[in-house]
Design a protein around this nucleic acid. Structure first.
Lengths: 148, 148
DNA sequence: AAATCAATGTTAGAATTCTAACTAGTTTGT
DNA sequence: ACAAACTAGTTAGAATTCTAACATTGATTT
């Protein structure tokens, strides 16, 4: 007899497969000469700008060292800019440039469209359950962050 | 006013952060000289052996080319073996060796223990909701796979 | 105020992953 | 039977990510 915790641990291992299925096809859309991390960073910035770099690296799930590389490339392409924060000189806030905003809006729309297509085969009731499940996960993020 | 699909697309971007929070600390546990992918492959094999390599690469969410590298290293370490499948000579089924079984059981237990610790701060009701959400996602995987 | 400790971001080199081309085996259609 | 199209796995080189050490700044302690 397994407790909830064991079941959760078991199910955690399946999430990458879920992501793979939900996002299949969007790599192709990413082909504005963007890597996956660049693509996702632009979307994250499109949804919330001006936060320190560490926040975006955590959102991506990559190390801060790796994210420096991603940010460097986006900056070279003229899509984002680093802005030192006034209240803490260690931190660099990220913002989209005008060019970056245009591209971010486009790929965010494509990303959403792609997910729509991928779940188009689901029944309405299954889509509703999925939405509810993802909301729970999003809420759990907040609960887990509080502790840290 | 957003539809469920737009909300789902929005929330998909948060999942990597969720994984990061749920698994934080388990990288340290992985330090039996295993990379993250080797670690996760051993756990996947511990839960289900004998399937072709492509299945495990999809579970991991990496390309088949990358998975060849992972499997090579696990084989060099004497933890798994490739076995050509009889019904389809292209396919290589993966199995744990005895040594691999012992290690896989250990790290799977550590992995579960680590997740337990990470969610120990949640209320029982939140844990139940999380379990339910992950079950929904697991079920959605099956629904999406059918289509393919 | 000084010292110590922690957090942010960068760097360099190693490890991992990706993409595309390739081999070999399977399936389909004729 | 055979050719074309497809699938599973490997390979090589490029791109990305990781780890550990570092410099700078901020927070805490004394």
């Amino acid at each position: 007899m397994l407790g909830s915790e064991e079941i959760i641990a078991e199910l955690m291992g399946r999430i990458p497969r879920f992501i793979g299925l939900m996002l299949s096809g969007s790599e192709i859309e990413a082909a504005d000469g963007l890597s996956q991390s660049e693509f996702r960073t632009l979307i994250n910035l499109h949804r919330c700008e001006g936060r320190p770099m560490a926040d975006y690296s955590k959102q991506l799930g990559i190390s801060k060292g790796s994210f420096t590389y991603v940010a460097d490339n986006l900056e070279k392409k003229g899509l984002i800019e680093r802005v030192p924060m006034l209240n803490d000189k260690r931190k660099q806030a990220l913002f989209l440039t005008g060019k970056g905003k245009v591209l971010a809006r486009k790929i965010d729309a494509e990303f959403t469209q792609n997910i729509k297509q991928n779940i188009a085969c689901l029944k309405r009731s299954d889509i509703n359950k999925l939405e509810s499940a993802l909301r729970t996960i999003d809420h759990t993020i907040d609960l887990l962050k509080e502790r840290t």
